[in-house]
Nucleic acid binder design. Structure first.
Lengths: 399, 399
DNA sequence: TTGAATATTCAAGTAAGTTGAATTAATAAG
DNA sequence: CTTATTAATTCAACTTACTTGAATATTCAA
């Protein structure tokens, strides 16, 4: 796949300044709504007048609405504002080898619609036509006139570019080697598009509406086809130089351990992932397909599944430890296509190294917690990415 | 130590826009000097006129100088500009438990002066007075009138804040628990100050003048007291939520392996670090003090040292692999207080996992290379941080 | 009832960017 | 050798969006 990465550092002007300031205002409203002009001015460093002008514009665009006057001691009561949840929507699309998922999410990150479509093959033309269908059904009747469509976030299996991981063949899409997915989807959907991997999308979903609300630096361990890591640092999504950051599944936690499909021994993925669980259970003659199969086994207290959890706990603890040491996040979130109960059990059975830089007194957030967005996370996360981009001020960089 | 971290997202205005654009222009000049107005305008997206105004201002400030007209085909010959190396200087200070180092660096990152001062104790008052002495001798006679002093970069042993790593006591400074180092040094040196850890400073030093010139995303494995990792992603230094990112020394690479001072088993630092080398050689009755002791042993082909290198190679390869998988950098740099020959030997003996996302064809830079800034890296890096901050446009965030 | 406090708006001023025309100096073409 | 074309730079006018200080509105406290 082509990577449209090489960002070039560009200058700013009045127009770009306004764009930035709009995002700043939206971001502050989102964090402390309902909130008045004066307070936004104080925390943003802008003049009240500037904030006032921007709010007028945002109200015009239906992204903000009044939330009534509220007296707080002396002085003119504050005229508060909040996000207009239904003022804008974002489309999220997840592409898996065998199916595509769609989600429509509003400004507040609330899910308005979800769908699933089978995917006969992975050719760009097929994916694109299904994407168009998803778009159509998501928007049908919903927002002909009033609602603004901010864009679409597409979640596709990585890693991107030409890489050496052979075992990843099962997750990468065929026929996309020479296409630029962003361009393809922008053309097909006729709206701005961002493309991300599942782990990153999940992380952003948690920031927009889940347990990472208000956090600026955190990590998300995502149980998908393999095991991915989404990283948000200082509010910025981390992608790496070639868009392949966060490949935690192939980090070696047991040197000389189990053989991984990638050819190395002891990859985390061979212990803690759906593949690992499936392999473990298949050894006991149990076939699992969907996540609900795992859930049923867990409810039934299946001994083999429990053993897998036990085995996964050590490597996973080690992974959390290294994430904490390398990224120093406010929290580490576990989530993805794994039942909540299993995730909770995994978290409870973690044996976190005490020596990590994260073992600090007076933490505001737990070191490890379960994601709150459930299993639809990926498609939802795609939409969340768009919301996030709308609301979070970005560095002045351009493709 | 107090952390002056919590950044708040602020708005922009004309003044801040100009500041940003100045940095953009400086950055482009630095990368492609000598360069003319028109080209800067093209790559920065600014109008020629804006670039022209900014260049006039920068020339006035003596940060840029003309580099002659140069005809390139038709049209008016380009009037090119380059950084005025001696137009500004930055001070770098490294604080170690027993000594302090100072460096003065110019805009181009060239070292103008270095010094070493003994440090009787670590109390803030002592450190501050030695810092003042370093400042005085560095600037003595040098820049009374013409040269602008951009600020100082102070490199101090982390980790910062209250953390659980007990073994780190040897590297952390005593008496600094309740002080904010930035404020202390700004007061003492009477200039803007940034404080960083050694690994990060080293990484930035390589970006300003070493092998990472022009790279936007890379990692630096630093052999200091322990083992640190400096991370630069998309041109931004990564610090983590609490300023302790990059603690790679305590990442576990050999579960159940050697006991580390931090209480865990199998930390990378117990295999690949100066401490590890010292322990290994002490076991053979050889005491080493400075890095030159190691160099002499290496020159002599000491068998114990060679064995240590052999032993360190595996864990280090694993560390490089995980760095590549998690950060997806353009390159990984090895450096710090370890002789070049040993670093080269270590790099040559690495057995890098083929399955990493970094094992891609057509790479522009080597996967792993040795740092070029030598052993003074830390103090130099401090100064480089200041140069870097002057030249690289930053996100609009404020302390 | 009056004065202080606070939020918001109004109106004028300013910084810094953009745009389009004019100027300058090369190379290419006739 | 002259003229046309091309490209960089500057000049002057214009625009955007922010700041500032005064005016207004509304509440609480004395």
């Amino acid at each position: 796949m082509k990577i449209s990465n090489p960002r070039r550092i560009v200058g700013s002007n009045a127009e770009r300044t306004r764009l930035h300031n709009r995002q700043v205002v939206l971001g502050h409203v989102r964090e402390r709504q309902p909130i008045g002009r004066a307070e936004i001015a104080r925390i943003s460093g802008l003049s009240t007048q500037a904030v006032s002008n921007i709010i007028a514009e945002l109200e015009e665009d239906r992204l903000l609405i009044e939330a009534g006057r509220q007296s707080e001691g002396r002085g003119l009561p504050v005229l508060k504002y909040r996000l207009n949840a239904d003022g804008a929507v974002a489309l999220g699309i997840e592409v898996r080898p065998d199916a595509m998922f769609g989600a429509l999410v509003n400004l507040e990150g609330e899910t308005l619609f979800t769908t699933r479509e089978a995917l006969p093959d992975n050719a760009p033309s097929t994916v694109v036509s299904v994407a168009r269908r998803i778009r159509a059904s998501a928007l049908e009747g919903r927002c002909g006139k009033t609602q603004k469509i901010l864009g679409a976030g597409v979640v596709m299996p990585g890693p991107f570019g030409k890489v050496g991981i052979s075992g990843a063949g099962q997750s990468a899409l065929h026929g996309w080697e020479d296409s630029d997915p962003v361009a393809v989807f922008e053309e097909a959907l006729d709206m701005p598009v961002v493309v991300e991997n599942d782990a990153t999308a999940a992380a952003v979903a948690e920031r927009v509406r889940g347990v990472a609300t208000g956090l600026r630096t955190f990590c998300f361990i995502y149980f998908g086809a393999g095991l991915g890591l989404g990283v948000v640092a200082e509010g910025e999504v981390q992608r790496g130089a070639f868009g392949n950051a966060g490949e935690i599944g192939h980090v070696i936690v047991r040197p000389g351990g189990r053989l991984c499909a990638c050819g190395n021994h002891g990859c985390l993925e061979t212990y803690a992932s759906r593949i690992a669980a499936r392999t473990r259970l298949a050894g006991a003659g149990i076939e699992i397909g969907s996540a609900s199969d795992i859930e049923n086994l867990y409810r039934a207290g299946n001994a083999h599944l429990m053993e897998w959890i036990d085995e996964a706990s050590g490597p996973l603890s080690q992974a959390v430890g290294l994430i904490e040491n390398l990224f120093d996040p406010e929290t580490v979130i576990l989530g993805g296509a794994m039942p909540d109960a299993v995730l909770d059990h995994l978290i409870a059975s973690l044996d976190l190294p005490g020596g990590s830089v994260a073992a600090r007194a007076g933490r505001a957030t737990p070191r490890v917690q379960r994601g709150s967005c459930g299993r639809l996370t990926a498609a939802l996360g795609g939409a969340a990415l768009v919301i996030h981009d709308t609301i979070t001020p970005r560095i002045a960089a351009k493709t």
